[in-house]
Design a protein around this nucleic acid. Structure first.
Lengths: 115, 115
DNA sequence: TTACTATATGACTATCCAGTTATATAGTAA
DNA sequence: TTACTATATAACTGGATAGTCATATAGTAA
């Protein structure tokens, strides 16, 4: 019988699952949307204005984020309010951010003396 | 004059930089390679065997990982040894992993009673 | 030198996906 | 009802990229 447990750590399937999450986060516009939602729930229109994107663009990205469990949707009258459901994404961003900073510093240290 | 500092937290440019890191990690084969390197340095051939991929496939992915500062290369005679230079990627994977697990549990709890 | 092994890379193809436009759906208000 | 607003979505297009194959490069060994 197949295991009813999660895939083993290094398996091809589990890697694909993890990669899928990273792929979702690998788009600047989606990151902008998530960043916007960090301050709390917002409507599609608000997000579109904040990220300077079209309504249909934002709606599409929100659909992807929601399908992958990163945001949630609440309808109120005419509008749809979206909010973060997976706060761990901000941990990810923080780690990447400091990782990128470290790399820049390391590379700067290797460069000829400009400053 | 332009700022000589890093981009502001929510700026379009900084989002693109972060997204780029996630995009690099958003490929299962690259994750497999990184997972393989978690146990220490390995040659291209060793990685190819471990991940069941072609030599040229692995070499190409290693080039991408190296160009983005995630792995380093050391040549020894005929072979090239690659190793992790950005251990924070494993933190990222761990966080994503537990996030994914939580989501599965949450969804399982919402499903009709099968077990 | 030649032969062999290990790695890198150019060219090509197929696939995926972000963005746009136009349209559909649905709630509100007159 | 009609008109308006907010959101979702189908269809299309262009660009990015993963995989493969063939070839180039380079180190080793005879």
């Amino acid at each position: 019988m197949a295991t009813s447990e999660a895939s083993p750590a290094g398996s091809a399937e589990s890697m694909e699952i993890i990669a899928q999450y990273f792929r979702i986060l690998g788009d600047a516009q989606r990151l902008r949307i998530l960043h916007c939602l960090q301050s709390g729930e917002h409507t599609v229109g608000e997000i579109a204005a904040a990220t300077q994107a079209s309504q249909s663009n934002v709606s599409k990205h929100l659909g992807i984020l929601r399908a992958n469990g990163l945001v949630g949707r609440r309808q109120d009258g005419n509008r749809a309010y979206f909010g973060i459901t997976a706060p761990f994404i901000f941990e990810l961003c923080d780690i990447v951010c400091s990782g990128a900073r470290q790399r820049l510093e390391r590379e700067r240290a290797l460069l000829p003396a400009n400053s």
